[in-house]
Design a protein around this nucleic acid. Structure first.
Lengths: 337, 337
DNA sequence: CTGAAAGCGCTTACAG
DNA sequence: CTGAAAGCGCTTACAG
């Protein structure tokens, strides 16, 4: 009776119906716990289905119901930047968090690493999407609109369908902390991608410089290169501006490279130079000395993003709406803590 | 003429056929570049489809063709271990690599973070799967078998459908390197999950101890806890075995914790104690001093895993089969490099 | 409480 | 070169 795998024909709802002496309708109702079915009939159907090892076809369910119970995580960053060392931790931490949250609501997560060549959207059967740090006039956002795929953004332009990453608040937190820790001439090193995060840090930095009366010193580094780009940018800054006594470097990979440049220049953290980064991830914790950073509550961010998207899809969450807490400073040795 | 989004009815192949004055068959053939269609007809169909913004329904295609062009990355680790700090980098590095490779062949990747509660397989419409480090008699492997889902394993039991992670070779590489770097009494700290990786390191360590005539000293730490577990295990080992002059710690998170324990014990790396870990990831590179590690060629591993799975699915790769290179030692300051 | 029938939107033999 | 029809495997009004 054992079917050869090559000959293996799928067990369908019709097979179960035939075997149970009932109609597909009743089988469907029984298995899905809907409609009015005699309890004994229902149990009988379940027994037969189990005996035949019946597994409903997700494909057919999706076509018929019009829902796929799948969502995608998309990023519009150029592939080199997004999968580059400097952002991998950020992206994947959100991805894992979202995959977990989604699953708890019966949704699976598709991963669409940014590929410059092919278009993942044409291959994906999804009900909605989460778009990470979209640019203004983002091409992926446009295509989602064209396809009428509902989506929320994370770290995008403010709005009801955006989950704020609170970059400005994080920037203020770090800059104030540096100044309170004794910095008089803090410098800034940014990535070149021009996303909201970088823009916000830039703005807040300039505003703080003006308010506190120190001359702004800003350098840019290429995000796709990683630590070495950060090292070079920091080396340049140290050479040209020996008066700097602190560096705010939102991208942790750059901060780790800068640490080396500072060391190479014969200066020490935190004695001669304070250093702070944004994302409190593996890097910030592992660096020597460990880096002062900001807890952005990425787990809460993924939770909120998924929850808001599901709400948009009509899956009114029975669970209470979650809020993303205000970013919290994590003071470490790199700023004298 | 603009459709309200709430009223928005999907444009189907029938709509295109009607508008073009042709049959669905011809539209399908034209758009998919198959069959015998008059070139002008074909172009006309394409024009009409573009004008109507027709997007084929992936759902319907999947049901009809029996293929979903989707694969899943599964892990059977308990959730706490697999998403725990100590393995996150490993899992996500493979995931991103696979997602990219798959996309190049027209496949999308579903992420199934290990959830103890729900069963992602029932929700996923996939043609095949990649199972990460399965245990013997792995429940997920069993369910894949039951559902007749083709799959390859990564770092599982040796066999044609397994992509070897070459743990034994990596272990030998590290142990030989430690001994050559002057270690006389190397100790070992392992995770408690009992996976092939840990078993292999244990075996090779014991064999090396016997061959070289040093007494084996092994400690275990809980993988779901992370760096702190590594620190405690190392602290214990240092206290009980002050004669140890090197530590081999395959899990990088533990190694980073051990670094702190060594420091707290008033000893220095590499002067008083050599230290080496396995995965050459962010941690190994960021630690101070940077850790000697092994390049496992995870990018090649993901490539091979995807390629082998697609071959299994009958997608004979036109691209040449890739091989996973032998693990390569990356000597760093933690062993005196 | 149960069932016959339609239909989700495609692709694929098959006929012309 | 083109088209009518079947069918992938479900769910859902609707009728009884």
């Amino acid at each position: 009776m054992t079917q050869n795998k090559r000959t293996h024909k799928r067990v369908t709802i019709a097979d179960v119906a035939r075997e149970a002496g009932l109609s597909p309708t009743t089988v469907s109702h029984s298995l899905n716990g809907i409609g009015q079915v005699d309890p004994r009939t229902r149990q009988h159907v379940k027994d037969v289905a189990a005996r035949l090892k019946y597994r409903p076809s997700v494909r057919a369910q999706r076509l018929r119901t019009g829902r796929s119970n799948a969502i995608a995580l998309l990023s519009s960053m150029p592939a080199a930047v997004s999968t580059g060392e400097s952002r991998l931790g950020f992206f994947t931490e959100l991805a894992m968090g979202m995959a977990g949250k989604a699953l708890l609501s019966g949704y699976v997560l598709m991963l669409a690493p940014p590929m410059d060549q092919c278009n993942p959207l044409a291959l994906m059967d999804i009900d909605g999407a989460i778009l990470l740090e979209p640019a203004p006039d983002d091409p992926i956002a446009q295509e989602l609109d064209e396809r009428a795929v509902p989506y929320v953004t994370v770290g995008g332009e403010p709005g009801p369908d955006n989950v704020d990453l609170q970059h400005a608040a994080a920037a203020d937190l770090l800059l104030q902390h540096l100044l309170q820790s004794g910095a008089r001439r803090p410098g800034l090193i940014l990535g070149g991608s021009g996303r909201a995060s970088q823009r916000n840090f830039h703005e807040r930095y300039l505003a703080t410089a003006e308010a506190r009366g120190f001359p702004p010193v800003v350098a840019f580094a290429a995000e796709e290169i990683g630590a070495e780009a950060g090292r070079q940018a920091a080396a340049r800054l140290l050479a040209e501006h020996p008066e700097l006594d602190a560096l705010c470097i939102p991208i942790d990979t750059f901060a780790s490279g800068a640490l080396r440049a500072i060391h190479d220049a014969g200066r020490r953290v935190p004695d001669d130079m304070l250093l702070a980064t944004r994302h409190d991830g593996v890097r910030a914790r592992t660096c020597q000395p460990p880096l002062t950073a900001v807890d952005l509550h990425l787990d809460a961010v993924s939770h909120v993003a998924v929850q808001r998207l599901l709400r948009m899809l009509g899956r009114e969450g029975q669970d209470a709406p979650v809020d993303v807490p205000t970013p919290a400073l994590v003071a470490r040795r790199s700023t004298g803590a």
